[in-house]
């Protein structure tokens, strides 16, 4: 079984299994590998982190399809756990949605979500969002489902209507998106525990995702608690980006103050440990497989 098939199958089994999936947003391939090595069940290649790591800019619809796709591809190639992808609005009309779906499926993503914000979109927890009429995402979801080549390439609907029209509208839209073919539902930015409960009551058997963003609209909730509330996936979209930024700032302040990185060494991985982590031993061993001496057997 090729990696793409295995990752789709693994993700689908997990989504429809009985344990909540802890999905970490990785800003880049190295972060994804760190997430994999430290217990994440899946990685999410998402807009907030990609905008930050690629452009050093906010998630305001400036990172385009090409950037998002390429970053997701780098992450997929670096890990052996499923990678789910943020496909934003599908980047245009239904023709764009087709290309988006085909592209993410081809690079080996386990699935994507498509959302109903107006382009240029913004992070779901930022102020000033606006959403399309529900017919727009309904058509995109139906198109995505018809375009995918494998049924286990999962399509999630995301609505941002909670912030614009309230929870009831967000739930009603999500029912329409599900009827259009969405395998999973994501209602962005519920404001309290009661809303999380209401979402599960509205979708008792549908895989649901909860978004735990530090400083966001939804209260940070324990993974086990989210599982009890009926959520199948919990995603941490900003934690690695914020932690990286915090650590880098502290490092550079220390350098500025002391003129050396020496005082910060105890908060770094070592040269040898890092080389080991990124697979230097394997690369060196691989090179040794193809020396002229080893090729004599074919002469």
């Amino acid at each position: 079984m090729r990696k793409n098939e295995l990752m789709r199958e693994t993700f689908k089994k997990a989504v429809f299994g009985d344990q909540i999936i802890r999905m970490v947003v990785a800003p880049d391939a190295l972060a994804a590998k760190i997430a994999e090595e430290n217990g994440a069940d899946a990685v999410f290649a998402a807009g907030y982190a990609t905008s930050a790591s690629t452009l050093a800019m906010p998630d305001r619809g400036i990172a385009d399809f090409g950037m998002m796709l390429e970053r997701c591809r780098e992450i997929i190639n670096a890990v052996n756990i499923p990678v789910f992808a943020d496909a934003d609005t599908g980047y245009g009309d239904l023709e764009n949605v087709k290309r988006t779906v085909r592209s993410y499926e081809m690079i080996g993503a386990a699935g994507i979500f498509l959302e109903d914000q107006k382009w240029p979109k913004r992070c779901g927890h930022m102020a000033g969002k606006s959403v399309e009429a529900p017919e727009v995402l309904e058509a995109k979801i139906a198109t995505a489902v018809a375009t995918r080549q494998h049924d286990d390439f999962l399509i999630m609907s995301r609505t941002d209507a909670r912030a614009v029209y309230g929870l009831d509208d967000a739930i009603a839209r999500s029912h329409r998106y599900q009827d259009a073919g969405a395998d999973m539902v994501f209602i962005e930015a519920p404001r309290n525990r009661e809303e999380l409960v209401s979402i599960h009551e509205a979708f008792p058997t549908t895989p649901l995702m909860a978004n735990m963003i530090e400083g966001g609209a939804t209260p940070l909730t324990q993974t086990a608690d989210l599982q009890r509330l009926g959520f199948r996936i919990v995603v941490y979209p900003t934690a690695m980006t914020y932690a990286q930024t915090y650590a880098n700032e502290a490092l550079l302040q220390s350098l500025q103050e002391t003129g050396t990185t020496q005082k910060f060494e105890d908060r770094m991985v070592t040269f040898s440990r890092f080389n080991h982590f990124v697979g230097l031993d394997e690369v060196n061993a691989r090179e040794q497989c193809y020396t002229p001496e080893k090729m004599k057997q074919y002469l």
Binding site: C289, Y290, T291, P292, K294, M295, K296, Y298
Partner: peptide, 17 residues
């Protein structure tokens, strides 16, 4: 040279399904 070419062929073989 042939040894280098064989190394590349074997590498491509090992890298692919």
């Amino acid at each position: 040279n042939l040894a280098d070419l064989l190394g590349k062929l074997r590498a491509a073989r090992d890298a692919t399904s």
